[in-house]
Each structure stands twice: as structure tokens, then as C-alpha cells.
Amino acid sequence: MSVAEGLDQAAVAPSAAASGTATGLASGPAYRPKPFSTRLFRSEMALIGGRRRNQMGLLVLAAMPIIMAIATKLTASDHRRGGDLMSSMTTNGLFVPLAAFMVEMTMFLPLAIAMLSGDSIAGEANLGTLRYLLTVPVSRTRLLAVKFASLCAGAFWGVLTVAIPGAIIGIALFGFGPMPTLSGSTLSAGEAVGRLVLVCLYLTAGLSALAAVGLFISTLTEQPIGASVAVMIVTIVSWILVGVPQLSWLHPWLLVDHWMAFQEFLRDPIAWDAPLAGLRLFALYAVVFWTLAWARFSGKDVTS
């Protein structure tokens, strides 16, 4: 091994220096690749965050809770707590992000995931950058893993963009303090924040499952808009099916049915059954659809 290393070092120096001259680069000793590097992931997040369209989307996500809070403040005359999240907003500011989630999980957050997943593979193929990324080289498996990780991080970012502005405006308008739960008891302010964090994590998991579906659809096409529309259709059809009582056997298998289980975190004690069932389904979707994406993408001819 040391003889070979010696040969390598001897051979490296002149050729490295020579090719260094040609390309104007000073190459030192050979760089050993790290076993795990986050450079590509960070590049993906920068790409997602830097896109004007995504920034506008984040503004819309943040605007919803703000609008809802202000509207409620302006119209609410009765400060009695109602039975559901929407009317509970006036009692504690932390209900604002929770009510906003009820609204935004139906369409806005899935739309954000649809846009991001459309961009992930189909968008790169459409721009032509996919072939250059693959010949860097980035292995197809690593690319899919990093893309999925960036979609999950994007989901978390979207969820936080609802939660944090919502919490801020809620606390500003409706105050902060012990929080009444859906079971009737009261949580301390600290516990309430903890529950909000759990809700955020749960919804991130739910959206990540949708992102896996989006990633798979993205590998099927070179048109990012087409992929995004397909993901929205999946979401909308799921919502429709969830509203059909005759298909109740299907409901546990639909993602959207489990998203709303985030409200179980507001019970005291937390009712874990529904969220755990949800997390199991999210994990199943993530594994199945990422694997489908991998199976499709690994063998695909990249002619874009």
C-alpha cells in the first residue's frame, strides 16, 4: 500500500502541477472526499429559497394567519370560547397558527409542496441542468435522497412560515398565557408552545409524505408544471374521496384524512392513536413513493 502511495504521490505532483498550469489552478495534495457532505443539500435549499416564486409563496402562507387574526379581532365581540379552533382564537394567541393550519393544510401547503416537487427533478430536466448535475457526477440515488431531504426541509419551512407569523400576530392581538384545550382543561403557556411544536412536526411529516408522491411524479415527466398539477390533483381527489362516506374503507389510506389529526395534540392528555396512525401512513407513503421514484429514475435515459 505504501509503495503504491509513494508511486501515486510521485505521479501526482508533476501531473497535478501540470494540469494546474493549464487550468490556472494550484492543486495541492489530493482531497479525500468526506463520507457525508451537506454541500449539495445546502445548494438545494439556497436554490429553493432564492426563487422569487417561492418567496412569494411564503408570503402568501404567512399572510393567511395574519388576515385571519385581524379579521377575527375586528369582528369578534364575544370573547367566550367556542367549541372549535376558529372561535378559540380570541382566547389565546397560539390558537391563531392552529386555526391557520386548518385552513392552509387543505390547499395552500399542499400547493407549496406541489410546486417544490415539480421543480425537483422535472424542473431540472426542463432547464437541462439535470444532465450536468448527473455528470458531475452525482449518483442518481444520492440526487433523489438530497432532493427528498430538501423537499422535507421545504415542508418544514412552509409550516414554520404559518406557525411563527401566526403565533406572533396571535400573541400580539389576543394575548398569551395558559391555553384551554379541546378536552376542557388548561395547559400552561410553556406546554402550549410545546404542543404547537409537536403540531408543526406532525404536519411536516404529513407534507413530506405528499412530497414523496411529488418526487415520484417529478421523475415521470420533464414538465414541472405538469408534475405540480398532478400533485394538486392527487390532493384534491383525496379530499373529495375523504368526503364520500361510502368509501370509508379507503379513508385510512388517504394522506389528507390523517393531516387533520393534528388537533389531537390539543387534547389533554394527547390522544396519540390518531397521530400515530397518521405517522405510520406517512412513513409508508414516503418509503413506497421514494422507492418508486428511485426505481423509475435509476434506469431512465436522460435525454433532456
Binding site: P33, L40, R52, T129, L133, V138
Partner: peptide, 26 residues
């Protein structure tokens, strides 16, 4: 291969930085 392809809203330098970030050996 078959002409240049980069992200239109990134600068030239940022595009190259992205390709470099994707390379585990650099």
C-alpha cells in the same frame, strides 16, 4: 453536452458554485 444549461436566475458564479457543491471530490 448539447449546449449550455444553467439556472436562469442564478448568477454565473452561483451556477458554478452549485456544480462544485454537487461534486464530492472537490
Amino acid at each position: 453536452v448539447e449546449g449550455p444549461a444553467f439556472h436562469p436566475y442564478l448568477s454565473g458564479r452561483a451556477n458554478l458554485a452549485r456544480l462544485d457543491a454537487a461534486d464530492r471530490h472537490t
